[in-house]
Design a protein around this nucleic acid. Sequence first.
DNA 1: CCCGACATATATCAGACCGATACAAACTGG
DNA 2: CCAGTTTGTATCGGTCTGATATATGTCGGG
Lengths: 193, 193
Amino acid sequence: MDAKTLCLGALMHSEASGYEIRKLFEGGPFSAIYDVSFGSIYPALTVLLDREWATCCVAEQDGRPDKKVYSITPAGRAAFLDALATTPAPDKMRSEMLFILSFGDHLPRSVVLELVDRYIANYEDRLSAIDDRCNDSVLPPVRRFVHNFGITMYETALEYLRTHRAELLANELSTREHVHQLEEQVLTTGGRQ
Amino acid sequence: MDAKTLCLGALMHSEASGYEIRKLFEGGPFSAIYDVSFGSIYPALTVLLDREWATCCVAEQDGRPDKKVYSITPAGRAAFLDALATTPAPDKMRSEMLFILSFGDHLPRSVVLELVDRYIANYEDRLSAIDDRCNDSVLPPVRRFVHNFGITMYETALEYLRTHRAELLANELSTREHVHQLEEQVLTTGGRQ
DNA sequence: CCCGACATATATCAGACCGATACAAACTGG
DNA sequence: CCAGTTTGTATCGGTCTGATATATGTCGGG
């Protein structure tokens, strides 16, 4: 799913500038399910113009800098639907937080707890941002399906983190127990599995 | 979080070949929280050798091709813990499935349903793969925390998809209603928000 | 007994992408 | 009036992905 397709998708709903497209993926309706950066969006929009999949006009605004508003063309819509026909790749998650946390044994307990708390705060922010933005607007059913999927996942993550935070507090003792178990294993098997 | 750090993390637990590291991220204990491809792993391992953060020896196996087994060095451990000290980026999700589904209005209903069913099957596979691999091994507490986080998220996704699949069946009718609402809005406001 | 399919294993590379950075216009508050 | 924030466009080095190539070995079927 390349940046061109993502931009076309954003333009399917309504015309938008590069900056506005970016906001759809950062805090907007796509924020829970996909991400794309400026460094991909602006070159992609240029390509869309080249292929005549979108048109562009400059809009003057008062109180703000001018913006370049892109609109999808019929050819663009066709190309987009064509791109959707490919079999989608499986979901991909990237959580630096959890990766780091999984090495909590090697970190000071204070660091681990601070990390979890920052993690929780982060999900709280994102959840409230989503709710604020969309709860009043009327969404078509498929959009609502996807929207609520994102909310559900965020809420689940939050609940898990809150209820299991304490387990990381019990870190030190449990780790000693674990080491003890390993030692017994080594004594019994000679270290071979 | 670059590929070098991810490889060091993999080697923290035990020595491994590039192929084995990859499997940790595809189906293994990291599969629910991060991903990294061969194209990043092999060059990263070469860099680790250059920096003396890992050593390497060739292991002959019977019934299989030889493999190059990498072990982390004390300097490597130090470098890894150093890399963990950076403030982690927020979680990033990439779901082509949900992106496509959110444009279900523009697709034949059969395609949408097929998509959801494939999506469900995909999560079922990943969930059972995780369970099979790890439910018997004894994990230290932080690992169990992360491991169960992944399982919880998968289960939540599955339950959501199963219980809300029917909503997409009601697609056509609801979309007509939605279009009707939009038309009324246009008549009232002239299309301006 | 060979053939294709599959798992194991390493490696490379063009093309795409990210994150940082730069620039600029306009508002906002101290 | 100046620093900071928001809105807005753009570029670029370094990194990563996904595809591809190559090779060894197993296994089951015709």
